[in-house]
């Protein structure tokens, strides 16, 4: 059996491995950056943060921007605590957060998610802003940002707006940012006992088959559970959260929440894992992450029980 099929390659498409030339634009101030973006024609200008994602897309011929706007000179490489809330400038390298003791103590889940992104070299370039702006389904940070109810501060031609990260993220490679808007910072409203767990075939430089983020926030609903490794993006599982009715849910409640999460999550099968294996992982990892988060809660001295 044979069939005649014609295979013609589009001549206009740039083959992989051929360098592209683009104009690098380096505005000195956020206002100038927004102005330049507003003046660019649609789809012609890409925003460069750490470049760990964009440059690979350019190299692999998935993107061929005419102009690349660098955020290098933006005054956004900062980290500051305002009371118990943490404000992180969008271009601060992940490595700085990773090396910060207070981040590790007060937002342990965020620290865990950051610590196992790529390699140290990559973390010295990658940023939180880039993770949100690129909205990759492979991001290990997005589930944790969602679970911690991080807020995104966005700068644009009509000023500044602030939204929960779950509203800003839309689908793979898509956010609700306007064409001339930039992420200025991320705000973590409060310190929170939290946990991030992933499963990969390899621990380093691999993409997680599943990522599980859990956090216990001061505001209701207290428990937050978010998953990564699913299409089109990381998402919160309110149905599973609803099972958890106290700060220290019973083992049964944890198990029920984990099963609810596994039931609700919409996974796909791909070369990294099958749908059924991902579901299995969620059932195990949500339960483990909840237990770890509970173990991280400060225990009132009087109520301390002997550990199991």
């Amino acid at each position: 059996m044979s069939s005649l099929v014609a295979h013609r390659k589009a001549i206009n498409r740039r083959p992989v491995g051929v360098r592209v030339s683009f104009q690098l634009v380096q505005p000195a101030t956020p206002e100038e950056a927004v102005r330049l973006l507003a003046g660019a024609s649609a789809g012609q200008m890409s925003v460069l943060g750490g470049g760990t994602d964009l440059l690979i897309d350019i190299d692999q011929a998935r993107a061929s921007p005419r102009q690349v706007l660098s955020l290098r000179k933006m005054p956004w490489r900062y980290l500051r605590w305002e009371g118990s809330s943490l404000v992180v400038g969008s271009t601060l390298p992940l490595r700085t957060l990773e090396l910060d003791r207070r981040v590790q103590q007060q937002l342990p889940g965020l620290w865990e998610a950051i610590r196992d992104v790529g390699s140290p070299a990559l973390r010295a370039r990658a940023t939180l802003g880039g993770n949100v702006g690129r909205c990759s389904p492979a991001s290990d940070l997005l589930p944790m940002l969602i679970a911690l109810d991080a807020r995104v501060r966005i700068l644009g031609p009509s000023g500044v707006r602030e939204h929960p990260v779950d509203l800003v993220l839309q689908e793979s490679r898509k956010t609700n940012l306007g064409p001339a808007e930039l992420i200025e910072s991320l705000i973590f409203p409060s310190a929170a006992p939290s946990t991030y767990m992933w499963q990969r075939v390899q621990p380093v430089n691999d993409i997680s088959q599943v990522g599980v983020a859990t956090a216990y926030l001061p505001d209701a609903p207290h428990w937050r559970i978010a998953l990564g490794g699913l299409q089109p993006r990381a998402r919160r599982l309110s149905e599973a959260e609803a099972v958890l009715r106290s700060a220290r849910p019973t083992h049964l409640e944890q198990e029920l929440a984990a099963q609810e999460a596994a039931r609700r999550a919409e996974f796909v099968s791909d070369k990294r894992a099958t749908e059924s294996y991902r579901r299995r992982l969620v059932a195990v990892m949500v339960r483990r992450a909840l237990q770890t988060t509970i173990d991280r809660m400060p225990r009132p001295a009087a109520a301390r029980k002997p550990s199991r």
Binding site: S2, H7, R8, K9, I11, V18
Partner: peptide, 20 residues
């Protein structure tokens, strides 16, 4: 140049009769 070679290679149209 390498880029010229790769561009030219990518531009070759190959018509193939597929077999099983």
């Amino acid at each position: 140049t390498l880029a010229q070679a790769r561009r030219a290679a990518a531009a070759v149209a190959v018509e193939v009769e597929s077999l099983r």
